[in-house]
Computed example of a mutant assay.
Amino acid sequence: MSTPSGFDELIHPATRLSVVSLLATTEWADFAFIRDSLSLSDSALSKQLHTLEEAGYLDIRKEGGGRKRRTRVRLTDRGRTAFEGHVAALRAIVEGAVPRAEGLPAAGDVSATPSTGVAQRHAEAGR
């Protein structure tokens, strides 16, 4: 099986995917909000933000000074495009992995249940 187009190895690790997912829902987010939302340490979050920033996926701004210093983060256009491509690739992987056994409904088909397929096969076989 080949990797679908758009799959991004940089975003894929769970912590980075969580960071990017959170940032995809907002324009700017404070460092403390991201840290607390994802239950990360300052150092763990800093490392992941730095990696994503180096790739051009994030814009990081430091505002103020001293104890009032605040770090704000946002996805760049490149980061948003990479995230959307990665999500599409993950969906393609998941949709391709859904088993299509005889008698089982297709993914998302709520009109039939596995037992319905079994009962129908037994009826067709004259049992």
Rank of each mutant, 00 (worst) to 15 (best):
Leu45Ser: 08
Thr76Tyr: 06
Thr113Cys: 03
Val98Phe: 15
His12Met: 05
Gly117Pro: 02
Arg72Val: 14
Gly66Ile: 06
Arg70Tyr: 01
Ala106Cys: 01
Arg61Trp: 10
Gly64Asn: 08
Phe33Leu: 13
Phe7Gln: 12
Ala29Arg: 14
Gly66Phe: 10
Trp28Pro: 00
Arg70Val: 07
Ser41Ala: 06
Ile11His: 01
Ala107Asn: 05
Ala125Met: 09
Ala92Gln: 11
Glu102His: 12
Arg35Asp: 00
Pro13Gln: 03
Asp30Tyr: 01
Phe31Glu: 05
Ala106Met: 06
Gly103Pro: 02
Ala29Ile: 09
Asp77Asn: 06
Leu75Gln: 02
Glu9Phe: 08
Thr15Ala: 03
Pro4Gln: 12
Pro13His: 04
Thr26Asp: 14
Glu84Tyr: 01
Ser5Pro: 00
Glu95Ala: 13
Glu63Phe: 09
Arg74Val: 03
Val98Ser: 09
Lys62His: 12
Gly103Ser: 04
Gly103His: 04
Ile93Trp: 02
Asp59Gln: 10
Leu40Gly: 05
Asp30Pro: 00
Gly103Arg: 03
Thr26Gly: 06
Ile60Tyr: 05
His122Trp: 11
Arg74Cys: 07
Arg70Leu: 15
Val94Glu: 07
Ser115Trp: 14
Ala24Asp: 13
Pro105Met: 02
Glu9Thr: 08
Glu9Ser: 11
Ala119Cys: 04
Ala112Val: 09
Thr26Ile: 10
Ala119Lys: 15
Leu104Pro: 04
His86Phe: 03
Ala55Asp: 10
